[in-house]
Structure formats: structure tokens, C-alpha cells
């Protein structure tokens, strides 16, 4: 058992990435994720890795594409406005079938917005962000420990399915400190026979490319990609359920919103309200089955978000609108209080 240490979420991501074998980090500073870059700048030179602060986010994401194409574990991190700039690169990564880890420590938007926590990049993350038919794997950690664990898992998943994986956190998760155990002994690596590493005149050329001018060919690529997505939806959903077994009301929330909601659920239970929490950990694929199962006994759902109501659409789809879904929201960097969530729970007429 390794020691428990007190770390910021952002630092835990950086150290976990290094322990997972990432030696290539490309970034550009932006609050509230700058500690990821700062940590990498300190550590990478000492372990023979590369830390590179690019001249822009666009440049940084394209460096990740280059490194990933060469078959190494590469990552970048940013916050909301920076992720918008990186979205072109994310689409190219999906098109080229390249694995990499992208961290988004969200802040309020749109535009430059503010620097306080937000979850309003949910649509951007779960729908792809860039152009074209594609998805990223999207993981939403709910603690500093999960920031570390999901970083390791994210690299593994990205390489297993040859696609970008996004760690979707927020300013609170990035800035807060909690005890964390960095125990990354058995890192799973995936063979990359497709990597462009030079043929040494011993094999055919590998080609990493997203361009296909023959419509039928491009259609085939997309269909194949979506077959893989269907497999992922079947096998890679992750969620935590808390007091859901006998629940009449189900609160759905991820990340910091789930932490706040858990307090409200505990308080409501003390008052005799049968309420439970489903915390999606994978946002894409969305844990539809957990929600559908809960809808067999629950009569009302509440989506708690730091956005104007984005995940609520996935909640409604997952239960096929068979139950009413209400929304608790705060935006612009404001975090809902447990009392606000509790009030919404108590307002439900069963």
C-alpha cells in the first residue's frame, strides 16, 4: 500500500499520467488547470520526458496528434475556451483513429467567460466538439483520487479503442486537495502496430490519415467506427449508484454536482424521503441502463448541473421520457448548494 498524500486534483492528474507512462505533454496555460502544466514542467525534464508549452492551444493539440501517431502516450490539458481551440484537433484525432488523453478542467462560458467552475461543456464533450461523426470517451471524476485513477484508465481506454479520451473535470475538482493514493503498478499498455515509427525498409508503410476522397470509402470508415462505438456503449459505461434500490426519486449528477447532491440525498433520507443518486462516471458512453433500471421503480428524476441543462437531455433519452425530469442548475461559475438540491427533492409531488 502506497502512502496517502494530499494533492490538488490538477497535480494528481499530472503525476498519474507520468506513472501511466506518459512522457509527452503539450499545453498552453489557462486557469483553472495551469497546475497540470506547471507540474509537468517540473517533472518531465527529470525523467527524460517532454514538456512543451506551445505558442497556442491549436499548436499544442497538433503536437499531441504527431506524438500519438508515433505511438507514444501523449496528452494535453486546458480549460473551456482552450478546448474550443483544440476541437479541430480532436476531430482529426478521431478521424485518424489516434489515442490520446485530453483534460478539460471546465470554467464558466461562453466566450472567455469566467474562471470559476462549470459543467457547461457537457454537450461539446459528449457530442464530440469538432466536426464530423465521432465521439470521444468522456470520463467525469468525482474526487481527487478519481482524477488520478481516471487519468490512468483514460490512457488505457484511448489505446484499446484507438480514439481520444477526455477527462471532463471542473475548477473545483482541479483546485481542491484531498488525500490520494498513487498506486499505479500494473499499467496496461496496448500494442500499436499501426504507429508511424519508420519502416527500416522491413515492412509496408503505416499511414495515419483522416482524408478519404472516395465517398463510399469514407462511409465505410464511419460505419466501422460506429460499430466500435456500439461495442463501447455496451461494455464501457461506468456509474456509481448511491441509495437507489428503493428510491422513488433519482438525482442524476456528475463531478462536483454529484458531491453536492450526495449531501442533499443524505439529508433527505434523514427526513424519510426515498431518494437516491446516480453519478455517471462515463458521460460518453452515458450509463443509460442504470437510469432505465431505476425508472422501473422511481417516479421522478432530477438532473443537477452546473449548466443551463445539458445532461438532462441524456437523462430524458435514457428513460425514454417515461418519468418527469426536473432540473437544478447554477451557471457562470456558481455551484448549487446542498440546500438547493434538497429543496428540489422535497418539492417533488409523488
Amino acid at each position: 500500500m502506497k502512502d496517502k498524500v494530499l494533492m490538488k486534483g490538477n497535480e494528481a492528474i499530472a503525476e498519474a499520467a507520468i506513472m501511466a507512462g506518459c512522457r509527452h505533454y503539450f499545453g498552453y496555460p489557462i486557469t483553472p488547470q495551469t497546475e497540470v502544466a506547471a507540474y509537468m514542467a517540473k517533472r518531465m525534464p527529470k525523467i527524460g520526458g517532454t514538456f512543451l508549452q506551445a505558442e497556442s492551444e491549436i499548436s499544442a493539440v497538433n503536437m499531441v496528434i504527431g506524438a500519438a501517431a508515433a505511438g507514444v502516450r501523449a496528452m494535453t490539458s486546458s480549460s473551456s475556451p482552450g478546448i474550443s481551440l483544440k476541437s479541430e484537433g480532436l476531430s482529426y484525432m478521431a478521424g485518424c483513429e489516434l489515442p490520446a488523453l485530453i483534460v478539460n478542467v471546465q470554467r464558466g462560458g461562453p466566450g472567455l467567460g469566467g474562471i470559476q467552475p462549470s459543467q457547461s461543456d457537457y454537450f461539446q464533450a459528449t457530442r464530440g466538439g469538432g466536426h464530423g461523426d465521432y465521439h470521444m470517451l468522456v470520463l467525469a471524476p468525482g474526487s481527487v483520487q478519481e482524477m488520478a485513477d481516471m487519468t490512468v484508465k483514460g490512457f488505457e481506454l484511448a489505446e484499446t479503442y484507438r480514439m481520444p479520451c477526455m477527462l471532463l473535470a471542473d475548477g473545483t475538482m482541479g483546485q481542491m486537495m484531498e488525500p490520494v493514493v498513487l498506486d499505479v503498478d500494473d499499467v496496461k499498455t496496448v500494442a500499436k502496430p499501426w504507429a508511424v515509427t519508420g519502416t527500416k525498409c522491413e515492412r509496408e508503410h503505416n499511414v495515419v490519415n483522416s482524408l478519404s476522397l472516395v465517398p463510399e470509402e469514407l462511409e465505410k470508415w464511419n460505419l466501422a467506427r460506429y460499430e466500435r462505438y456500439a461495442y463501447i456503449e455496451e461494455n464501457e459505461t461506468r456509474a456509481e449508484e448511491f441509495m437507489t434500490d428503493d428510491a422513488d426519486i433519482i438525482v442524476v449528477a456528475f463531478g462536483i454536482a454529484a458531491r453536492v447532491s450526495k449531501n442533499a440525498v443524505v439529508a433527505a433520507r434523514k427526513e424519510g424521503v426515498k431518494v437516491g443518486l446516480i453519478r455517471p462516471i462515463s458521460l460518453w458512453p452515458f450509463p443509460k441502463k442504470n437510469l432505465a433500471r431505476a425508472a422501473e421503480h422511481a417516479k421522478h428524476f432530477i438532473s443537477v448541473e452546473l449548466s443551463m441543462g445539458q445532461m438532462i437531455e441524456d437523462v430524458e433519452l435514457a428513460i425514454r421520457c417515461s418519468r418527469p425530469v426536473s432540473l437544478v442548475k447554477r451557471v457562470g461559475g456558481v455551484i448549487p448548494s446542498p440546500e438547493e438540491v434538497l429543496e428540489a427533492i422535497k418539492k417533488v409531488q409523488l
Binding site: 496517502k4 494530499l6 486557469t31 483553472p32 474562471i115 470559476q116 475548477g171 473545483t172 483546485q175 481542491m176 486537495m177 484531498e178 488525500p179
Partner: peptide, 15 residues
């Protein structure tokens, strides 16, 4: 708190 094996959290204002 951590050294006493308790659960702890620390959240700064930032910016």
C-alpha cells in the same frame, strides 16, 4: 487530519 487517517478536503478560492 490526513495523518490521523481522517477524511479531509481543502478547497481554496482561486483567481
Amino acid at each position: 487530519g490526513l495523518l490521523e487517517d481522517r477524511q479531509v478536503s481543502w478547497l481554496p478560492s482561486y483567481g
